[in-house]
Write a protein that binds this DNA or RNA. Structure first.
Lengths: 242, 242
DNA sequence: GCATGTGAATAGATTCACAGCG
DNA sequence: CGCTGTGAATCTATTCACATGC
């Protein structure tokens, strides 16, 4: 039972393509979570999920799920729930995952290595199209079935492979220069793993993952819990929303 | 010029230890950013920074810096700015980084490997005290100058090393079981890299890093930018706050 | 009847703007 | 005078609670 796309779309009626509502940033950040949960549900042949069930799977509450999904459109059925396959498709489309995204990883150290081999990327349509490192010693080395190429080839690679997303996994010292080169080459989205604040033009999206920052945040709550008195004082303080 | 701790602390006056104000979660998450910026400033022998300068370094705005720092106390000097060394100490203390945190990494695949070798941890007082993997084939293997130990040894390791923080870098399928074991062993903070929602007791802090979720968020904004019309339509839409 | 979808209420975070003080 | 520290205003996100419609 897959609903048809027909039937009055609430917004911008008529004009064919994407719904184009403005989705809150917090909601966008949770869509991948719902996607993953729906994929799990689909694996167990579940055809329908309630907001309650989906919330449980994604680790959030049901009201949030409903509100979030309502930004995409009215894709549920009252009294029933959401069709798993249909919602999967809608979220995928909204996230732009119905297309293939070639990515380049710059900086093939320990982390770059791990990212190059990470299965989770390809599972979501992110294809690691090239590996780049400035170290001449690394050039030509085979990593994850690919040859590592030089930083001077970056512009060519981005153009040839039509790469829009770059991953920076270099040491902090060279990360800004690498980001600049990525932008110059035409990349418009950057995921930064280097522990440094990058500056990019306004029309380039930037997200960061900082491993040691996450530990520092845990340290804060951990200390607080421990400081709050001796005998196992269990102050219920969840550091993250998951 | 390092200020003394004396002088009327606004909150809970008198009773010696930690200030114990309630700091907003968003602020806690930015403190590590300020810390890093201050360390950079200290390297260049800068003794004082204004909120303006610190904001620039941390990639946020000055009002936010002042508001954030005000939760820690009145550690600045009007007309002057913040003393770098003093503020470094205060933030470190607030984050609990004046003590050493031994951590255990469970799951020594590509990512676990990279994490075990990550320099950024030790730089902030996080000492990788043990590596654990359930795969008997990995047991005894040397990684980052350590021997990988078995999952059955986990409880003993946590107790012996007084480990409060565990890092889960296993495949999704076993992550929950590993988390359960960590909790049973007495770990009260978990950083999860597995792409799955973990459930832990209320008195355990949990944070997650999901590599492919970050890419999916970038994909959303990237698609949106590209979908908005052909000729380089530069919709200024920054995906993250850095 | 039951679960969605959504206005309204609440909570939390950010930004403004300026009083206060070195 | 210059920059911090902070109430007040604003914006964003979450939660509530119920009308709506299958």
């Amino acid at each position: 039972m897959v609903k048809q796309l027909a039937g009055g779309e609430a917004d911008t009626p008529g004009n064919g393509e994407r719904p184009r509502r403005r989705i809150p940033e917090a909601t966008v950040a949770r869509l991948p979570l719902y996607l993953r949960s729906l994929l799990e549900a689909a694996e167990t042949k579940t055809t329908t999920v309630s907001s309650e069930r989906l919330a449980e799977m994604a680790g959030v509450n049901a009201a949030k799920v409903r509100k979030d999904l309502s930004y995409l459109g009215s894709y549920g059925t009252r009294g029933v729930g959401y069709d798993v396959e249909y919602l999967l498709f809608q979220i995928s489309r909204e996230l732009g995952l119905t297309q293939d995204w070639p990515v380049v990883i710059v900086g093939i150290g320990n982390l770059g290595h791990a990212l190059a081999n990470y299965k989770g990327f390809s599972e979501r349509g992110f294809r690691v199209a090239a590996l780049v490192d400035s170290d001449p010693a690394k050039r030509g080395e085979a990593v994850a079935g690919m040859r590592v190429r030089g930083l001077d080839e970056l512009a060519q690679i981005v153009a040839d492979e039509r790469i829009a997303i770059g991953i920076v996994a270099t040491p902090a010292t060279v990360a800004q220069e690498v980001a600049d080169r990525l932008v110059a080459a035409g990349v418009t989205s950057i995921l930064n793993f280097a522990p440094v604040v990058l500056t990019v033009p306004d029309d380039v999206s930037l997200r960061k993952v900082d491993l040691s920052i996450e530990l520092q945040i845990l340290s804060y709550y951990q200390q607080r819990r421990m400081g709050a008195g001796e005998a196992g004082a269990a102050i219920s303080e969840l550091a993250s929303v998951q």
